[in-house]
């Protein structure tokens, strides 16, 4: 029984390690809604994976990537505001995913598990995916860290200094897609973004440099996952929502406490 707990904790730890630094960039680059849109499209990846008998993780990553490119292309059409565009894509891809799953006759999918996550259902194969994919994500993120940070601070300065913005942006979106595929198992499609932004937002009050903020966000994420997981394990709470509630509580506490702890 405890083995179940520990493999779930290990999965959560892996996610927190990724979500800290990546989520910090989501906060800095104001991409929360963009992340939500990518996450919602993940259900379409699940549906396509079932229908075409593909690896579900890879199908999710592929659909997220295609959607990221679609967003970038549609954004160049300036007649619609960004949030309008993302709102359209976010909800239509989620609905498309649900409709596509309904087409797969005779298929019994744990829809709630995909929508809200089920960390206690994590299997050893998932751990391999989380840590293998996760290591790749962190290595690539380290590789683009400086140029990505520079263009987050000022695209104009980055361009004047000859950084290759398009490549960095594409790599970053690919990383988002992989992390969404990983986080989907743990907190679910509808709650993925919260795992990215709440720990990072909590860390903001205590950090003076970007790197510190990313590191603190990892810590907050680990704490939130352990608390939420315990709730799921001992009180039979739904695990995804329990984790999100835990991180929201940490955010509120830190918000109340940070003026006392840190001189700004």
């Amino acid at each position: 029984m405890m083995a179940l707990f520990w493999s779930a904790a290990l999965a959560g730890l892996g996610l927190a390690l990724l979500a800290g630094p990546l989520g910090s960039f989501v906060v800095w680059r104001r991409m929360a809604y963009f992340g939500d849109t990518l996450a919602h499209s993940a259900l379409m990846g699940v549906a396509l994976g079932y229908l075409w008998h593909l690896d579900l993780n890879l199908a999710v990553v592929a659909v997220c990537l295609v959607l990221a490119v679609v967003v970038v292309v549609l954004r160049s059409n300036r007649r619609l505001a960004d949030d309008t565009l993302l709102g359209i894509l976010s909800h239509s891809t989620l609905s498309l995913g649900l409709v596509a799953l309904a087409f797969a006759e005779g298929l019994r999918v744990d829809l709630m598990g995909y929508l809200f996550g089920d960390i206690l259902a994590v299997e050893p194969a998932d751990l391999l995916w989380i840590y293998g994919g996760g290591a790749l994500v962190l290595a690539l993120l380290a590789w683009i860290w400086r140029p990505l940070l520079l263009m987050t601070v000022s695209e104009e300065l980055a361009r004047a200094e000859g950084a290759s913005l398009v490549r960095v942006q594409l790599v970053f979106m690919a990383l988002m897609a992989v992390v969404i595929a990983i986080a989907m198992k743990i907190v679910g499609i509808l709650l993925v973004t919260s795992m990215l932004i709440i720990p990072a937002a909590t860390a903001r009050g205590f950090a003076r440099t970007p790197e510190r903020m990313a590191a603190y966000a990892v810590g907050v994420g680990v704490l939130a996952i352990l608390i939420g997981l315990s709730g799921a394990f001992w009180w039979d709470l739904p695990s995804g929502p329990a984790i999100v509630v835990a991180s929201a509580a940490l955010f509120l506490i830190s918000h109340a406490a940070s003026p006392l702890l840190v001189r700004r």
Binding site: V27, W28, R30, R146, P147, L149, L150, T152, V153, S154, L157, E161, A163, R204, A207, R208, T209, P210, R212, M213
Partner: peptide
Amino acid sequence: FAVADNLPLTVERFLNLQL
């Protein structure tokens, strides 16, 4: 030029951004 408040950045770190 302005840096949004959501990104913690000291002057020293800013100067070191690229290299």
